[in-house]
Design a protein around this nucleic acid. Structure first.
Length: 103
DNA sequence: GGAGTGACTTTTT
DNA sequence: GAAAAAGCCACTC
């Protein structure tokens, strides 16, 4: 679970009001397993990890809204709006501005 | 230990 | 430019 753990750690590094992408996370971890990032978050969306701040490369939520099992994250999406992130048709406005890039 | 899986990304049609 | 297909790696069953 080390990989997952790393993912969680990075997610926690995402400052409030900003978002990141699975690609960035994976790249930061020096891996191409983009899907693993999503998997990690999915298994651990119970934990205090701001997984809702992680979007896909297009800057929009992936799977959240479509799946019923994770419809709880729909509420988290609204949380993002509370943090200052604006959504438009499921997409994020000024995505590149609020995108948090890992170093 | 092998096969299946997935909140993705990139390339190709 | 949208839609489909393939590639990817770690984790679970």
């Amino acid at each position: 679970m080390t990989f997952f753990n790393d993912v969680y750690g990075l997610c926690k590094q995402i400052p409030k009001g900003k978002v990141s992408t699975y690609g960035e996370l994976a790249r930061k971890l020096n891996t191409k397993a983009y899907r693993l990032v999503g998997q990690a978050l999915r298994n651990n969306f119970y934990v205090d990890v701001p997984c809702h701040r992680v979007l896909n490369s297009k800057g929009e939520l992936y799977g959240f809204k479509g799946s019923k099992d994770i419809e709880e994250l729909n509420e988290k999406k609204e949380l993002l709006e509370q943090e200052g992130i604006v959504f438009n048709n499921g997409k994020v406005l000024n995505f590149e501005k609020i995108l948090f890039k890992f170093k």
